[in-house]
Design a binder for these strands. Structure first.
Lengths: 205, 205, 205, 205
DNA sequence: TATGAATGAGCTTTCATTCAT
DNA sequence: GATGAATGAAAGCTCATTCAT
């Protein structure tokens, strides 16, 4: 049934890695739609038959690369804060996190922007990004929770999502599209906006 | 070289309109990748040969449809404010605009999300979206400018971009992907965040 | 949706005919599994794109060829009896029909045997053959009915099927596989068997 | 040249049997075209390399399975009559044999019909079926010979073939294709037809 | 002797675009 | 001006078989 190989032996593992690498680089270089399986196999120094014995189809490879990539993204943003309890979340801390997000968007901008675009038409890609979004929103909520006595956010859950979107979308603009005005200016305004939001919260509640 | 017709006569103009319409509806219905030029010509009641005498290629059509669509989007958001000078920009006004943005995302979500995705791989599509973004950012700056005595925003240009991004990205999440939590909660937090930002502005400046 | 062309113009009709012809000859020559669509298109002097604008897929072509072929088979067997009421169905008449069946098996033995074999794995092919079988069984029943006063067949419906099978299967053996003993000897015994059956019918009833 | 092993040792013989078994079951279950060699090797608990050290290629395996299967078919039909001299061949005896034939078609209908279909495009498969047919025709002739004083069949050799074909083809219809009318009615008419044939024989002779 | 990783020819189908009529 | 028949590159995937380890 599933004749897709799960590599156990040394040679297998390396071959699979070579394919994943070739795929990642070609996707980043020539775009996802501009790359076909034959090319990937060739770049990996492997026959097309081998390609399909490691990956059920083209998309399986893409998803595997994407999962790896999103793990990297997550680590880039949160690694340094994993074992730290931030309970003095101020403008500097917000800015620090934003800057980490921007760093994460430098890992592989082309691949990142193209797969992100595919969310809207491919449920599997979307799922991978949703998993990642959930992880990030969870981290934000955790920060809000740890600082709630100093903050006026009434709907933590919604706030976390809105904050996440704001940061992500400025990063997209800057890193995927390019901005006429300086990145630092945008980061500053973004940090202000979020910081004010945390401090003053809802006007209605 | 280019034998593409620039329609000047009445009938020609209508034929071209019919093709644009057919294209828009099919793209919205079946997706851009799921629609081929023959289908569009058929739906427009035109031969495939005619199609190619009005449009150099498929992308030319897509760009024309997209420009029309983005004009509609722009109007949906700003139409009601065109001849009004808002100089009492408060939370209600912010919320009103956000809600208009959300309405604009209901015009043709499939077409909208798909073309938006194409920004990241197609420079021409990107250009159309950039033109639209500039119009919107300009409107936001205009609002900020008209209300500057009541506001503490130091870097108007950057602030306008950040605000625009925040709204757009929440709209994307809600309308293109779908959100587990209620749309209204997100709109409320978003309105709070932006309103606070306008009132309290930069901490550094 | 269905973009398969229904030929209305002269050129179209000829192109389609050329493809059908090429298909029939190649299938007969190299076998159905041994022939690919590219080859058919080439032999028809047509691009592969044209092939697929006349036929939804490879199988559609095969079915169309098969229907035509089975019409020919039917005519070969029954044409000469269409306007005649045989009410003196004796050994000579039985033999005459058998000989017509054998002639029908000479039209295109390879194509015939291969498609017949596909009945058992392809429902569409089976349907075409079932239609043909029904036509033939109906003819046999019609003969039995017209001669029933001279005959002892109790279960006409079953008898017609059994007779049809007996003739068809000897024709298969002789024409598709080849027989060590002479065709005429088999035809004679077959004619005897059927004739006796008609005259003496059921021993139990 | 041929490094295909002829198993002489106990373990080898068993391994080969396991492969044959796995092949037979998979072919019967999923069809011959739906089963690949890797699957067979897996089901047999053997590496694909081993598979090819026992069988030169896929077809060799199929032929071996087919020979075994046809032996089973033959036994199912004739086993009970092997040591008996039927010299009272009447309608009951004919019907008994027909019913045994029908039983044989229940052993593995899918495998049976698929391999039978392959006769017409594969000479080796055809050879196996011809061998089987000869055995069966020989048995029928043997019966005819033992009862010749009560029978009027002039051309025993041809008669045996015709009878064999008649039975086989009704079995095919019923077991491979399915018949709208009841199996028993067909068997009855078939038995009548054959019995009458034996009793009244040739009209010409 | 056994293993299973690797091979690559081969096949079907789509669709944007052209150009003869 | 309009038509629509014709084009053909391009791409994903399968599987029988080989051979290095």
């Amino acid at each position: 049934m599933s004749s897709v190989r799960t590599p156990k032996q040394q040679r297998s593992i390396q071959t699979k890695k070579r394919i994943v690498n070739a795929g990642f680089h070609l996707y980043a270089q020539k775009g996802i739609h501009g790359t076909n399986s034959k090319e990937i196999a060739e770049k990996a120094g492997v026959s097309i038959g081998s390609f399909y014995s490691y990956f059920k189809n083209k998309k399986t490879l893409l998803l595997e690369i994407l999962e790896d990539f999103l793990d990297q993204v997550y680590l880039t943003i949160w690694k340094e804060m994993e074992n730290v309890t931030i309970n003095e979340l101020g403008r500097n801390e917000v800015k620090f996190i934003i800057e980490n997000v921007f760093k994460a968007y430098d890992i592989a901008p082309t691949f990142h922007s193209q797969t992100h675009a595919l969310r809207y038409s491919d449920p599997d890609i979307n799922r991978a990004y949703e998993r990642e979004r959930n992880r990030e929103v969870t981290q934000i909520r955790y920060l809000l929770e740890n600082n709630k006595q100093r903050m006026r956010v009434s709907d933590q859950e919604a706030a976390a999502i809105v904050i996440h979107n704001a940061v992500e979308s400025v990063a997209h603009t800057v890193k995927f599209i390019g901005s006429k005005i300086d990145e630092q200016r945008l980061i500053n305004e973004l940090a202000d906006m979020i910081n004010n939001f945390l401090l003053h919260g809802s006007q209605e509640g």
